[in-house]
Every structure is written in C-alpha cells, then in structure tokens.
Write a protein that binds this DNA or RNA. Structure first.
Length: 952
RNA sequence: GCGGACGUGGCGGAAAGGUAGACGCAAGGGACUUAAAAUCCCUUGGGAGAAAUCCCGUGAGGGUUCGAAUCCCUCCGUCCGCACCA
C-alpha cells in the first residue's frame, strides 16, 4: 500500500475497514487467553522481543462496557460507549497490559415478550435475530473485542449457573420468601416495576394499577446496607455523583426506637405499647400527637371497633401511589381514640391518629409528631387544631417570643420548653434523651416509668418481654400482622430483650431486592412447591431448569403458569405431585454477575473458575450510562459480596473504576402538522447566522426545535449504520470522542461529522506525504532546529495524549492530535523540495508516533497509514511509542509578565534562571519601565516556570 | 422539600489559584478552478485607535489574594438524583 501517488487518492473507508477487520479476526489478536500472559495470542506477529513493552508484561487490565440489551439495532449511545471502551482497551494493550475486553448480551426482558404479543414471533427467535444483527454492527465498528467470550444471558449455559447461585444464596440465608406489596396490572396480569406505573396506570395496558400482596422471592441486600454504604468510600475511581446517589439510596439514618406505653382505658385490644422510630428524640417535649400508618396493626385493631376509622383507612388505601397524587395529597388523619403516655411524664397523654402520610415500611410505621420542627407534622396539627410548642430556639431568637405558625424550624439551636433538656444543643439533647430512655424500663400501661435500671451491658438476653411482672400483656413476638417484622430491618446498636423504653437504632431506606417476575422471558427460579414438603429447591443435578419453547402469547398473564405440562413435576423430596415456581428472575439478576462469567465463560460445571475470577476481577474500567448509577451498580456490588460468601468470587467490589458517559443528543425537527421529522429527511441551509431546515422530499420548511436525547418518539435519531456506510466507522468514532467531554452529552451534528471526515482525509494525505520522504535508516546524531521542532511537537503530543487517555479525557486527546497534525503539516509545507536527512528522519518518526496516537480512536485508518509508512506489523499490536522526556524540556522559558495582575509582556529567560536574574530581566522590560514610571516596584512575585507579577 | 452538579465567544468546549478563549465547528475574506466540490492561506469576544497600544470581558453582586473562570459568602438561572423516609 506504500505509494507515491497516495496524496491524490482519497482514503476509502468502505473498502479499507472490512479489510482490516478481517485481518484482525484472522490473526485472532483480540482473543485473550486465560494462559499465563507471556503466551498471549498477539505475541506471534509481534516484532522481535526488542519490543519496548511486550504484551501482558504490565499485568492484567479488564475493561468492560455495559453490555447491550438486544433490542434490534445499535444506537448512537452504543457507538459512544463502545468507542470509549475500545480506546482504553487498545491503549492499555499497547502499554503492555494483558487486556480483557469482552462483549455479551443482556438478553432476557420484556421487549421480547412484547414483540411476541405484537408480532407473533417467539421471544427466543426475536432475541437471537437481534443479537445477530447487532453483532454485525458492532463488528463493523472495528472494536477490539474478544468475541470468543461472547455470552447471552438467555442461554441455558449461562442461566444454569445463575440458578445454581440462587440455590447457594438460599442456603447461605441470602434469599427469603415473603409477602410484599406490588403494583399489579389487572389487564396484563403481571407485576409492574415502579417505573412502569405512569399516573397510576400500567404503562402498556393503561389499566389502573392495584396494590396486591404477593409472596415473592427476595435477595437480602439489606443485610449489606452498612457494608455497601461504608465501602463507597473505597471506590475512589468512581464518580462522586454515583457514590452520592448510592449513599442517598441506601439512606442510613441514626435514631431512637422508643416504646410509648398506651393508656389502658383507651386500648382497643390487649396492646400496651406503641413503638416508634425517630431521628429527633431531642424534640420529645414538643410532641403533640402520635401517628400510625393506615397499615399499622394498631390501626387495624382500632378500626375493628370503629367503622368510621375503618372507612378512613379504606380511603387511604384507595389513594394512588402515583407520584403526582402523593405530591399534592393533603395531610389527613383520624383520631383512633387511643392515648399514648409520654415517656418522661406519666400524666402527659398524646392522641394517637391514623395519618395518611406515614409509611408502613419505614421505621416502625408509627411516629410521634413534633409540629414545631417538622413541616409535615405542622401541616397536620394546623389542620386538626392540635397546636405546637417550639422546643428548639434558633440562634439569636428570644425563646420567650419565638413562635411557629406555618413554617416548621428544622435548623440548629438551643433547647427550650424541654424541662431537663433546656439550654442544651440539639446533639446534647439527643444524647441525653437516648441515655435516659435506654436506662429506663417500661412500666404499666397506665404510664409510670420506673427506674433505676439494671446495668445495661451483660444483661441476660433471654430476659423476656418488656415490663414482665407488671400488669401488662406482652406483645406477641413476632406480631400477628406483618408490620412489626419490618422494624427489624434496622440494626439495633444496643441489643437487649429486657426492653428498655428506648434503643438506639440505625435505619436504612434500602429495601430487600424483590426478584420475582410473572414473566416468561427470564431465568426460571429453581424451586418446586410441594403440598407436603413446602418449598423445595431443585436438586443441583436437575439444573438448568429451562424455559419451555412451546408457549403462547395470545393471552395476558404468565405463559409459564398456563403451560399444560411445564410446571407439573414430582417433588424431589417425597416424589409426590408438586409444581414448579413459575415466576422468573428480575433481569437485573442476569446483569449482576456477567462480568464475572466473562473471566471464564467456558466452564460448564460452575458459575466461575476461581482462578480466573481472582486473576481478572475487579473490572479495572467499567463504562456505561448514568442511568444505571443505582440499581445495576448496587445490585452488582451486592451480588459480588454474595458470590464471595458462597465461594464463587473472592472480592467485594466488582468495579474498581467506573466512568459514566453522557448521552448523544440531536436537534429536533417539527413539521407544520406537528409531526416530527428525522434528521435524514431534512436539509439544513445556512446563510450568515440563520439556519433553516426543509424537508428534502417536499421542500416544506420545518421548525428547528431544541436539542434533545435521541429518541424514537421525537425521531431525532441517526442510524449508526447510515453513518458508517457514508463516512466509515473511524469517522463516527472520532466524532464521538471530539469536542464534548465524555461525561457530558454530545451533540450529534452533520457539520461535526463532516469535520471529522475531513480530518480523516487530511491525516491520510499527511501520512502519504511523510511516506514519500526518503529518510536515513539510522537515527542521525544531530538534529537541526527544524527537525528538533518536529520531534518536540510529536513527543509533546505523545505525552499529552498518553496522559489524557489514561484519564479518559478523550476530547483533549483529539485536540492534541489535531495540534500534532497541524504542526507536521506546517513542517512539511516548508520543506517541499530539499529535505535534510535529520528532518526527514524526524518527520518519519513523527509520522509513526502520530499514527500510534490516533490508532485507539481510528484503528482502521491507523492500520492503513501504518502500512503506508512501510511497516509490516499491525499497529494494533504495536507497543505505545516511547517518550523522550528531554524533548519536552526547553532550554529557555518564556514567562508571562503581569503588572498588577494583568499580563503586559513576556520575558524569556534560561530555564534554570534564579529569581534575582528573572527579576532583573523583568525590570529591564520597556513595558515594565513604562508602567513603573521611574518608581521602584512595591513587590515582584516570581513563580518559577510559571509567571512574574510586578506590583507597582 | 432535601441533596448534588453546572453557568466561559455565534456554537461544542480549553485553562495544577498564574498569559482567559487551546482544539474543533460555523461565519467572513482571499488563492486555485471555465465553474463547483475538494484543498490551501487570512480574519473572527466587545470597544477605542492608522498603528504601537489601551479599556472592558468567564450568570449578578460582594470577599480572600500580588494574582480568581477556578477558593469563600449572597443572589439568579439551568440540569440531575431522591422524596410524606419520621
């Protein structure tokens, strides 16, 4: 391909790209073997071992992009995501790392079933067709992926192991079956995720969603709440934003669990106490009422004797779960007639209300209301006339005159109106209340608290229920209705069954992960239900439990459930008639461990080969969208811990480095009739500052709308295939990395693509010109100024690009490559006819460096250029160029000179000039003399290598 | 409501507290061409000036500093996450 006429030929990406893809493929250079690194596949066609950093020598590097859902075709978001990963993979390979860069398919999920319903295709057929299409598209992008490790999560060879781990987790106590409230779509007869409920209706059916109690399988992620939270601090290569989002999601709060005795005369049944959780025990003397969730057992007990209360609770249940309704819902309550006794004052009785704003599944489902310092409580008392007493006085306010009317005060301050707490800070008061109450033991239901307490530590844990010996009826444990069990989600700091009035408790917002889905296209849960033996795990020898192929989608509901034979099996324990679990797993389970499977996707008898998992994990660089900041990434962190506990992995954190890339956005175009037009249908004309868009077909003018995320609904999508067809993959890849910082959104524009395409051609011409230069084989002993300038430009670019790739600042890499190309172009432009040998050598060296630098971004063009420069190797297996740091060091340095902080001149001094020399040189400058007007400066600040500032 | 991020030319964006606007796009002018495309050269934050040069400029207003796009305070705006979480 080395020709002298290259400068007249355009680079033909359409011809070159498949050709190089074939070469890479045939030589298998991106296949990563699980052998010792010195036997890496790529070693074969590498030049002699003189190579500067043979592959694999630097250790392992696992780069992974979030694998795609096979929805049909790749979109520009994929192009951006996978280009970034590929740049890292190719760079690390060149740096001598043994790189693992695999790809697979997140292949289970609802769209396949929807397609089955809409178009009568089998989900499996639909999925595998999509995989074939998308794989072809990814291959045409020239990604350096190890396709030998390809996995699809819908393959029984994959989900078999997932079922095995489910059973292992079950044995390890990490799986639980329990009742839970779910969003139920009565038309589609399935559970909907919260995101699938839009304005209280199913997103697909439009039916009003019901709340149903279903028995479901849960992964006990909440066992790891504290660990998942604490370990966030160790993830120093994660975006701060993602860590914060996870922290908020886990939602740790420290507080006090307080038992309020109930006034016996008002108790509906035999209950004698009400347990509440609070983070503000300091405000206990501001209490005005107690609040119960409508789902609270005590509310139910009271409702049994009060039809009006029962009706109120019923109304609360009818209230939608839709966000909009919750936002606007008025605080409503109903007095149960029950009275609770203040823990510090037996004569102080508080009314117990059922209130619509109290959640059953946080804390204990009950609160005490302190209206002065909580807006919700204030709204509530203002409606029911319960009044408020401020107990925290803001700094600078007079406690005598400080009142609360409509706005609760939740800031800092000094305790007031609070008896023994008065004068304390909030923190002191919290501590004092906790200290007193955890050393107080509950008395009779009439209210008196007794003391003194026995010593806290070392007490008998079998001590029984609270206030034994007094006239109380112990609360059954566990309680009859689901509520109380949920209070146990928190971790009690003080363990005691001897029941002090209060215990310190840490609560988490994080709920256990419900994984049951009433769907066909998912991983079957390997469980058998037997009337005699109960819940029986499928024996390991019977795995995988595979999905039946003969299913129908003509009716709503779960096809597995109505399959004539699939669910009917014999109980593995007693041999009697039994039935399979027909729920399948949430597809987030599939994606919670695929990164571990990639380390050895071939092993048939276990999910992972510990040797390989230990060698490759953690993923060194994970790249994907911010939309997975919480669920996928949190589930994977949990799953990795669970795999460690069950012996399938050896670490806690799967992703050492995480990068979240921005979206691809595009202008929108709207026709006169309100319909959207696709970018491909529109022609843009620019004259001066105005742009107008017309339909190519009809000439109709269309309105140019705001720039938005590419979406089918707004039709502002650009098909990657079209771009690769007309410009080539390299142009698309280059544009994706240009301009916008990778974590921000990138605006796809026709002009931008054309700019990228022009640069592809420019590089091709530039390399052609360099290839035409005859250079000496041996490195010259001396370099003239022109040659030195070229070498400096190339090595500066090398240093900058290396640094910026390592930090994933691809837009800056692009800029540095432009600079380098500009510098080389200029240098060549000045020589044309007579090139001295040193300059010729320098230009050839710079050409080689330049090609290596853009290879990770534009690999096909780089191969073509590499060959044109006369190399017989592949640039894809070439080592990263060796930097000569002395070329970055100038013998003189030009410092900007400021006068009173404003730049007024430059001064050029020797690089190692001392401060006094620099000062003298600066004061000799005309501009400085002029500014000083003969006076001497007040001060001269010299920052070595940086700047000089003269204070006049 | 709570938490967070961001705000720089016509546009995307560069700037370890140290020359604001790198690099690209767009625009304008010119060269080549019969012409177009492609390519190459020049100009391009605002203002004053023939020029040297000077003044103003990083959402607004204060502050710290020899020096602030960058740090601190107040405000405005945009975006994101969570949300009757007690």
């Amino acid at each position: 391909m080395t020709t002298n006429s290259q400068k007249n030929e355009r680079y033909n990406a359409r011809e070159a790209e498949p050709r190089w893809q074939k070469v890479w493929d045939e030589r298998g250079i991106f296949a990563t073997k699980n052998d010792p690194p010195s036997r890496q596949g790529a070693a074969a066609d590498r030049p002699a071992p003189t190579s500067r950093s043979p592959q694999g020598e630097a250790g392992k590097y696992y780069v992974l992009e979030m694998f795609p859902y096979p929805s049909g075709r790749i979109h520009m978001g994929h192009v951006r995501n996978y280009t970034m990963g590929d740049v890292v993979a190719r760079y690390k390979r060149a740096m001598g790392f043994s790189v693992l860069h695999p790809m697979g398919w997140d292949a289970f999920g609802m769209p396949a079933e929807n397609a089955a319903m809409d178009r009568k295709v089998h989900p499996k057929a639909w999925t595998y067709e999509n995989i074939a299409t998308m794989k072809g598209q990814l291959k045409s992008m020239g990604l350096s992926l190890d396709w030998a490790r390809e996995i699809a999560t819908c393959d029984p060879a994959y989900y078999k192991h997932q079922q095995k781990m489910f059973l292992d987790f079950l044995k390890a106590g990490l799986v639980e079956r329990k009742q839970s409230k779910v969003n139920w779509d009565p038309v589609d007869q399935t559970v909907l995720a919260n995101e699938q409920v839009i304005d209280g209706r199913g997103w697909r059916s439009g039916a009003v969603v019901e709340q149903r109690e279903l028995t479901q399988w849960f992964f006990k992620i909440s066992d790891y709440s504290q660990d998942l939270l604490a370990a966030l601090d160790t993830l120093d290569r994660w975006p701060e934003k993602v860590r914060l989002m996870q922290k908020n999601w886990i939602g740790r709060s420290e507080g006090l669990l307080i038992r309020f005795m109930l006034d016996r005369a008002t108790m509906p049944n035999m209950e004698n106490e009400l347990e509440i959780f609070t983070t503000r025990p300091d405000t206990l003397f501001g209490a005005k009422f107690m609040g119960l969730s409508p789902d609270h057992p005590l509310a139910a007990a009271a409702a049994a004797k009060n039809p009006k209360l029962a009706a109120f609770i019923e109304e609360c249940h009818r209230m939608g779960t839709a966000q909009a309704e919750i936002d606007t819902a008025e605080k409503m309550g109903f007095d149960t007639g029950i009275r609770a006794v203040h823990p510090f004052d037996p004569n102080w009785k508080l009314p117990v209300y059922v209130a619509n704003f109290i959640l059953m599944d946080y804390g204990t489902g009950a609160i005490f209301g302190c209206p002065a310092h909580d807006q919700r409580d204030l709204d509530f008392v203002n409606k029911y006339g319960l009044g408020n007493t401020p107990v925290v006085c803001p700094p600078g306010q007079d406690p005598k005159t400080f009142v609360i009317t409509d706005v609760a005060y939740d800031g800092d301050g000094t305790m007031i109106n609070s008896r023994f707490l008065d004068g304390m800070t909030i923190a002191e008061a919290k501590e004092e209340v906790a200290r007193r109450l955890e050393n107080t033991f509950a008395a009779a239901s009439t209210g008196a608290a007794t003391s003194p307490p026995p010593p806290l530590r070392g007490r008998d844990r079998e001590g029984g229920i609270a206030n034994s010996g007094l006239e109380v009826t112990p609360l059954p444990n566990p309680p009859p209705q689901g509520g109380r069990e949920k209070t146990m989600r928190g971790e009690r700091i003080t363990q005691s069954n001897n029941a002090p009035v209060a215990q310190r408790q840490v609560n988490y917002r994080l709920r256990d992960w419900g994984i049951s889905r009433q769907r066909y296209w998912g991983c079957p849960i390997p469980i058998i239900h037997c009337a005699k033996c109960g819940v029986v795990p499928v024996p390991e020898k019977d795995l995988p439990v595979t999905l039946p192929d003969d299913v129908t989608f003509d009716r709503p509901g779960n096809p597995l459930d109505r399959h004539p034979t699939w669910k009917h099996v014999k109980c593995p324990q007693c041999g009697g008639d039994a039935r399979r679990e027909t729920d399948t797993m949430d597809t987030f389970v599939d994606s919670s461990w695929y990164f571990a499977r990639f380390t050895d996707p071939w092993i048939a008898n276990a999910p992972t080969d510990r040797k390989q998992v230990d060698r490759w994990l953690p993923v060194d660089q994970y790249i994907g969208g911010i939309e997975h900041a919480i669920l996928h990434l949190l589930y994977s962190r949990f799953f990795t811990r669970a795999m460690k506990k069950t012996g399938h992995a050896g670490l806690d954190e799967p992703f050492a480095g995480l990068f979240t890339q921005g979206m691809v956005v595009h202008e929108t175009y709207r026709k006169k009739n309100g319909d959207w037009a696709m970018p491909a249908e529109v022609k843009i004309e620019t004259s001066g500052d105005t742009r107008r868009a017309t339909l190519i077909a009809t000439g109709e003018e269309v309105e140019i709308g705001p720039i938005e995320k590419m979406s089918k609904s707004k039709k502002n999508t650009v098909d990657p295939d079209d771009i690769m067809e007309s410009y080539g993959a390299d142009t698309a890849r280059w544009f994706m990395l240009s301009d916008s910082p990778p974590e921000r959104d990138v605006i796809w524009s026709e002009e931008g693509v054309q700019g990228a395409s022009r640069f592809v051609q420019r590089l091709w011409r530039l390399v052609g010109e360099i290839a035409d230069i005859k250079a000496p084989a041996a490195r010259p002993a001396q370099f003239g100024d022109a040659a030195l300038a070229v070498r400096k430009a190339a090595h500066r670019a090398l240093a900058n690009v290396s640094d910026d790739i390592a930090r994933l600042r691809f837009n800056r890499c692009v800029a540095h490559i432009y600079e380098c190309a500009n510098a080389l172009g200029e240098a060549i432009g000045t020589v044309e006819s007579a090139v001295t040998p040193d300059l010729a050598w320098a230009l050839r060296e710079a050409g080689d460096i330049l090609v290596c630098l853009f290879h990770p971004m534009m690999p096909h063009l780089a191969e073509e250029c590499w060959a044109a420069l006369g190399h017989k190797t592949l640039v894809a297996t070439e080592a990263w160029p060796q930097l000569e740091p002395e070329l970055l060091v100038e013998s003189t340095v030009t410092l900007p000179v400021q006068i009173n902080g404003k730049k007024r001149a430059d001064v050029t001094v020797a690089r190692d000039a001392g401060k006094t020399d620099i000062e003298a040189a600066v004061l000799a400058l005309d501009a400085v003399k002029r500014a000083l007007g003969g006076k001497s400066p007040k001060k001269v600040i010299v920052v070595p290598q940086r700047i000089v500032n003269v204070v006049a």
